[in-house]
């Protein structure tokens, strides 16, 4: 009951039916220094009646299949991306005449690598597209965060008729396929003359991200201790004060996880960009340009590989830097459709 110190209960935990610990809580942490997990990693020699001493070697052998399986899967899962990474630095001719793994025949031969592919693909519109992706993704992340956090605060802590109904509708909208909305919105955009503008995709992405954002944040904000909000009210805080000085700082973990989720989603999106931006190359994001390269110049492997890698740069950086928030968002928002 000492809410004074404890962070609010992570609402993410409740939803998924019982995960108690966040496995990715701290990717940097040395697993060996993590005492709570240690027991599960020990081989368990403590069967009553079957107890026998095991040497280190026996223990290693007993776990060998596990090590083999885990390493094999990890390698298998990394190989495709790794192949692309290597390929993107190979000269166009080499790319189409030999497999990327052949570079390991002479691994120290640095002349077989080049940055030329990147220069070419940047010139072919990828540079502009990269900027466009940023212009699309940042506001399309910030806008729904602001709107969803305000709404979540009202839904969790303010009393007004219909708030439960609004939230239930939001939960329902979580899985509505956005395909349902494409035709009417595109038509409305055409009438309004805002198709092929950033505003069009910002608002569309904001709206499509809202159900998840409201759902996630409302659950988190709703689990903040009531006392804190009342204490602030007694201390003289207005609703906006409570929001900016108590709710937002305390909800940062949830806001961050939604931010990562939404940013990756927007950056990686093809459908919304394809439909609402049409063929306008001036505003096309990396996914759209990459898709066009696949369509028009599908045999130019040097463009494909370097282009794909440029498109993956930002999301991968975000992923590695903010993995734990991403996981938390997943744990909480795994009902998103």
């Amino acid at each position: 009951m000492n809410t004074g110190n404890s962070q609010p209960v992570d609402p993410t935990v409740r939803k998924t039916g019982g995960p108690q610990k966040d496995p990715q809580k701290d990717p940097q942490k040395d697993p060996q220094k993590d005492p709570p997990k240690a027991p599960s990693k020990e081989p368990r020699p403590s069967y009553v009646g079957k107890r026998k001493e095991q040497s280190n070697f026996d223990r290693l052998m007993a776990k060998a299949p596990v090590h083999f399986a885990v390493i094999a899967i990890a390698v298998l899962w990394t190989l495709p991306t790794f192949g692309l990474f290597i390929s993107s630095f190979r000269p166009p001719d080499a790319l189409v005449t030999s497999g990327w793994w052949t570079v390991f025949l002479n691994p120290l031969e640095f002349t077989q690598f080049t940055l030329g592919n990147y220069q070419e693909v940047l010139a072919a519109g990828m540079g502009q597209a990269f900027l466009n992706s940023l212009v699309i993704s940042v506001p399309a992340t910030v806008i729904p965060i602001a709107i969803a956090t305000f709404a979540a605060y009202a839904l969790a802590w303010m009393d007004f008729p219909g708030r439960q109904a609004i939230f239930i509708v939001t939960v329902g909208l979580l899985v509505v396929p956005l395909q349902m909305t494409l035709i009417p919105i595109l038509r409305a955009y055409n009438v309004l003359g805002i198709s092929s503008t950033f505003l069009a995709v910002w608002l569309a992405h904001a709206a499509y991200g809202l159900p998840l954002g409201v759902y996630l944040l409302r659950n988190y904000i709703g689990s903040l201790p009531r006392d804190l909000i009342e204490a602030a009210a007694v201390d003289g805080a207005s609703y906006l004060n409570v929001f900016t000085r108590i709710i937002v700082p305390l909800s940062m973990p949830a806001i961050a996880s939604f931010a990562v989720f939404q940013f990756l989603w927007v950056w990686n999106d093809l459908l919304v960009a394809l439909v609402y931006l049409g063929g306008n190359q001036d505003v096309a994001p990396v996914t759209l340009v990459l898709r066009n390269i696949v369509g028009d110049r599908g045999q130019d492997w040097f463009l494909l590989t370097s282009g794909a890698f440029i498109s993956m740069l930002v999301p991968m950086a975000v992923f590695f830097a903010l993995q734990r928030y991403f996981v938390r968002g997943l744990l909480a928002g795994s009902v998103k459709g």
Binding site: W77, T78, P80, T81, G83, L84, S87, W100, L264, W267, N268, D269, L270, T287, L290, R291, V294, G298, W301, L304, T305, G307, A308, S311, M312, P315, M316, V318, F319, F326
Partner: peptide, 17 residues
């Protein structure tokens, strides 16, 4: 990691495979 890669990016990766 593939979770962070777009479907388009993944498609390019696998075209190569």
């Amino acid at each position: 990691l593939p979770m962070a890669i777009s479907f388009v990016g993944a498609s390019v990766i696998w075209r190569f495979i």
